[in-house]
Simulated scan of single mutants.
Amino acid sequence: MMDQNLGACAGCGVAIQTEDKKKPGYAPASALERKVVICQRCFRIKHYNEVAPVSMGDDDFLRILDGIGSTQALVVMVVDIFDFQGSWLKGLPRFVGNNPILLVGNKVDLLPRNINLNRVRNWMQHEAKERGLRPQDVVLISAQKGLHIDELLARIGELRKGRDVYIVGVTNVGKSTMINRILHDFGSTELEITTSPFPGTTLDKIEIPLEDGRSIFDTPGIINREQIGHMITPTDLRKITPTSRINAKVYQLDPEQTLFLGGLARVDFVRGPKQPLVVYVDNDLYIHRTKLEKADEVLEKHHGTMLVPPTGEEAVQALPQFVKHSFKIKATGMSTDIVISGLGWVTLQGKHEANVVVHAPKGVSVGIRKGLI
């Protein structure tokens, strides 16, 4: 019989138990003597950065979020600016009911220097509207660097009007890091929510009491399986996850030339006048240019060695087969981004027509949008 009423892990929110090491929430009995109790999984993530998969499915995460609509609360939806499409929480209105929404763009520190942040806010408002969401406001922050946290707190205070606050988003957008930043800025060091670069770190709602008797709730991230990060190893995931400001890479391409983005995607410039393709991916990701006629041969010969990640033959074998996505970019004078979810995007300036084919692993979302930069 499992332990009852041992409380919740302060790191991930799951119920603490002391009997089954293989199940979520396990903690040795000695850990219960501590002032702040965390499960063994959180302990290993915090101190050893270990990968700690758990047996929770999408239905478990959806069940936890399902009750938000029946409450009176401010909903703060956090997205990753670098992976806006991949970090968009689909179907949010069905969870939040009539509650107001504050949209937060995290990881603003990754964007290139000199970018107009007001333009980014307007762009996010436009993209949200395109997806059927009308947020009360948009705030841009860097949870990791602590940028604009004061502005975020001010907007939360203005919009919540004495209500609870629910922080929602897909996995790895930085929700827990953001809350930890807020806690530290207020001098609360006893509670620290577990964060890691791996999906599914928070397992249940974590309640943080506020002075007025209300609470902030950190909710588990919904897993978006259309992101490429769910198809590669944790080691390779670190290699494609930016940790510093992105440097745009400009390639002047002739028709029938190809760009390999590591071994995870391939961009064929099939037809159109010579023009620049601007690539926004992690600074250390290897990009290889070749002729289109040689692209298949290059992939077959160098996938997993020169074209990495994925790293090694086993990682290549585990990656789903590439599928094609064809796009015809019109000469509108407005830039267009071709987005590969979880990897980055390629911008065409829209001065000339272009036919582009993107090859990406089956299941990865690939699409176009109004240019961000």
Rank of each mutant, 00 (worst) to 15 (best):
G350V: 07
V308H: 10
V366A: 08
T219R: 07
K175C: 03
E33C: 07
L307A: 02
P242T: 10
V173L: 12
P255T: 15
I81D: 00
A354E: 00
F260S: 00
V357F: 03
T332L: 12
L133M: 13
A354T: 01
G11E: 10
L210A: 08
D60Y: 11
W88S: 08
E130D: 03
T305L: 08
I222M: 13
V36N: 14
W345P: 00
Y251T: 08
K239T: 09
M2T: 13
G221T: 12
V357G: 01
V37L: 14
R44W: 03
H288R: 00
A154P: 01
A73E: 02
A354Y: 01
D80A: 11
I246K: 01
I167F: 11
K107P: 03
P361I: 09
M306C: 00
N106C: 14
L259E: 10
Y286N: 07
V76I: 09
P197N: 14
G350E: 03
T189Q: 11
T258M: 15
C42I: 04
L292K: 10
Q136R: 10
V170E: 07
S55L: 06
F260T: 02
S341P: 00
H288G: 00
L147H: 12
L110R: 05
D80P: 07
P199F: 11
I329F: 08
N283H: 00
K129V: 02
V168K: 01
L285D: 01
A143H: 04
A265I: 11
T336A: 00
G213Q: 10
L372T: 08
A248I: 15
I38P: 10
N116C: 11
G174L: 07
T194S: 15
E313R: 14
G169Q: 13
D150E: 14
V339T: 13
Q85D: 15
I156W: 04
G262C: 10
L277G: 00
G169V: 08
S70C: 04
T18E: 06
L261Y: 06
D236I: 04
R44A: 07
R63H: 07
F186V: 11
I373G: 05
F260Y: 10
Q144F: 09
D80E: 13
K239F: 03
C9Q: 10
D254P: 04
I182Y: 08
V267F: 12
